[in-house]
Write a protein that binds this DNA or RNA. Structure first.
Length: 409
DNA sequence: CATCCACTGGAAGATATGGCGA
DNA sequence: TCGCCATATCTTCCAGTGGATG
């Protein structure tokens, strides 16, 4: 069979304009926030110590985009003043689970290649000290942007230390401002009150976009990204409505449109229609779930597999005790040590948070209160994602057969 | 109205892994 | 090598929870 790549360009003009890394010339629908943000950044221009700023709002409501945009602008404008020497350090904390790791990462960012330090082993204060040394070496005004800071959870020592470093004499020449960005509204409350005081000097809240706002954003991006006439009337409106209903996230709306376009293109259609968006929606949903499943630990997977197996036998929803039994036999088959029931319960909670399982509370009085778990994703995609679990190919095959027998989908 | 079930969820402590400096 | 240090993952312990039951 002869194969051949052919260029398909009937839908997109510049697909990157719908992508994550694209920086539009103009940020839509965030004028108020930008104004407030600029006001909070004013001390930088004036040469004073910068404010610490805390931004919060759901994913995809423009926090990072506005920040990037304003930092570019700020760095450019500040060149007019000789006495302001501004550096911006930006770090995404998503995979960093503690202040310690954030500090290590910052140090490594500032050090020349080869001088990096490893991510464990030092006492925390040692790492902070190294960080102060690096910052002082840069000097001037330094803005540290910590995106997705909420992932450090309650371990917020760095957020306590950094803003005070100068007052405590750790920094001589550097004026540091911290800009924390969080997707989690509750994060602010779980911070140490002293951290709240300093970090949240200036707080900016980014509300979700509503449907008309999303539609505006979409259409301004679509102008750049998509060929003339390649979007059917109402499609942008539909994407906007879906995203507004779900999260109010521009990211989600743009992803929908981009994927819908790709689907249309692959099918050889010249125009994106609502059906494509619908397909895109369910595919994105499934990707999200599979992503979550890939990151599970061995026991997390076994826990999920236990529920899948129960589902195949049409025995879900199903209480913890029964899942634990199923889990135990699976552990035996795979020659894995079983965990205590409490730990299985933890895994089930995790799976619930990932949206892979759902639970409903049973309050049956004298017979106790407990959760009944069941799969919250299509059976097929669940078992598909499980197919590479260690040493359990046989069992998975069996589960598949049972499922087919019972007509489970 | 007290008691009880069958958990849930929080917290503290144990264990193992990998890295540091001396 | 040894004593520390940070972290992830478990285990152990335990105080709730709230409708049904006697």
């Amino acid at each position: 069979m002869s194969r051949r790549f052919e260029r398909k360009q009937n839908i997109f003009r510049n697909k990157d304009a719908l992508g994550e890394s694209y920086q539009p010339d103009r940020i839509e629908e965030r004028d108020e926030e930008i104004e407030e943000y600029m006001d909070a950044l004013q001390p930088v221009v004036d040469g004073w110590e910068p404010n610490n700023i805390f931004l919060y709002g759901n994913t995809g409501v423009g926090k990072t985009a506005v920040t990037d945009y304003l930092m570019d602008q700020l760095q450019e404008d500040v060149t007019d003043y000789d006495d302001v020497d501004l550096s911006v350090i930006s770090l995404n904390c998503k995979t960093l689970n503690s202040s310690y790791q954030v500090a290590v990462e910052l140090v490594n960012k500032l050090r020349p290649a080869g001088g990096e330090i490893s991510s464990t082993g030092y006492p925390q204060q040692t790492v902070f000290k190294k960080l102060y040394e690096e910052l002082d070496a840069i000097g001037g005004t330094i803005l540290i942007i910590l995106d997705e800071v909420d992932s450090i959870g309650g371990r917020d020592e760095l957020l306590y230390e950094l803003p005070r470093a100068r007052a405590n004499g750790y920094l001589e020449s550097a004026k540091v401002g911290v800009i924390g960005i969080s997707n989690d509204f509750k994060f602010r409350e779980q911070l140490d009150p002293r951290v709240q005081d300093t970090l949240c000097e200036r707080e900016l809240q980014f509300p979700p976009y509503d449907a008309p706002e999303l539609e505006n954003i979409l259409s301004s991006r679509a102008e750049v990204a998509i060929a003339e006439g390649a979007v059917e009337n109402g499609v942008l409106n539909y994407c906007a409505a879906l995203a507004a209903r779900d999260s109010g996230s521009a990211r989600q709306a743009l992803d929908l449109l981009r994927l819908a376009g790709e689907i249309a293109e692959n099918q050889g259609d010249d125009v994106i229609v609502e059906d494509h968006v619908e397909t895109a929606r369910s595919r994105l949903e499934q990707e999200r779930v599979e992503e979550g499943m890939r990151e599970l630990t061995t026991h997390g997977r076994l826990a999920l597999l236990a529920v899948i197996s129960k589902a195949a036998k049409e025995e879900t929803p199903c209480r913890t005790r029964d899942i634990y039994e199923e889990y135990t036999t699976l552990c035996e088959s795979s020659e894995t040590d079983t965990l205590a029931q409490r730990s299985l319960h933890n895994h089930l909670s995790d799976l619930r948070m990932l949206g892979i399982l759902s639970a409903h509370e049973n309050r049956s009085g004298s017979r106790g209160n407990y959760y009944s778990y069941q799969l919250d994703v299509p059976f097929t995609s669940a078992i598909e994602a499980m197919s590479d679990v260690l040493r359990l190919d046989g069992e998975i095959q069996t589960i598949r057969e049972i499922a087919t027998m019972n007509d489970v989908v």
